[in-house]
Design a protein around this nucleic acid. Structure first.
Lengths: 143, 143
DNA sequence: TACCTAATGCAACTCAGTTGCATTATGTTG
DNA sequence: CAACATAATGCAACTGAGTTGCATTAGGTA
């Protein structure tokens, strides 16, 4: 077993959820990705095939246990990532490149905090950016 | 004509786009809303009926001219709002309540800025929050 | 008026995600 | 180990957002 698979099994067991084949390979794919993935992308990176419905249901149970969460990104399809790098409700910023469509996790940046109106209870927060990544910026200058 | 309609016509003309019935009533609805709206919500607030396809195409042309933009919110449906309250790439934060599903535009809050990795070009940025609004927080405490 | 183009409408489609139900795997108890 | 209960997976059919191609209408211009 690959280290990321071992890690995945551990995480599943720690959250009291059975490490089935589908779950392990899905979580492994997400752990190895380093960027939020959609259902289709996860399916491609899995060693095995699994039904579309199973993928969605597994994603839901992983979210329910808190192992993964959805990226708060405006996107046609829902993107998921392991939540173990985020602290409480503060999630790292995401940068989506309009050129190559890649999503960059800016884990090196401290998430900013703002003052909410009285009475509001914050549960998740994330800074979202759109623009051009370094490579696409360079590519555009060449033309 | 209502003031918001006059405003809508002005905005359309200033951006060199014909103030047709559909466009005016769509933009008016968005100007009056004070929160980002989806296609369905816009249709409901319009005085007249319009084809679904027309609504989408009109939204696209309004975005293209820069009169409105999409809210960078993780949502099943795309939400739109007039862009005249945002400055350049810095957009006001949005708070989405998981109780009532309402979206709050926190225009009173100064959008935070962060340092991007070298070479990245920022075009849009927005802070996104999820949690419970004041009313839903109170409602939950009562139970 | 005649014409051209932009705007709108209609029908049919794609694709993400869901629901209901059948089937298989896994853990538990006798 | 056998029998059972439940969790997990699969299949088919559906919903709903958004799109595409083509026909029709409206508005501006010569």
């Amino acid at each position: 077993m690959k280290p990321s698979e071992i890690k995945a099994v551990e995480m599943l067991e720690q959250h009291g959820i059975r490490p089935t084949r589908v779950r392990v390979s899905m979580l492994t794919a997400m752990l190895e990705a380093g960027q939020p993935l959609g259902r289709e992308q996860i399916a491609q990176r899995m060693g095995q095939n699994a039904n579309k419905v199973t993928l969605y249901r597994t994603l839901h149970s992983l979210v329910k246990t808190g192992i993964v969460h959805t990226a708060l990104i405006r996107n046609r399809v829902q993107l998921y990532e392991p939540s173990h790098h985020c602290w409480k409700h503060l999630c790292h910023p995401h940068f989506v490149c309009r050129g190559c469509q890649k999503t960059f996790c800016l884990t090196g940046i401290t998430p900013p905090t703002v003052e909410l109106p009285a009475g509001f209870r914050l549960e998740r927060q994330q800074l979202q950016m759109e623009g051009l990544c370094r490579i696409c910026t360079m590519a555009e200058h060449e033309t």
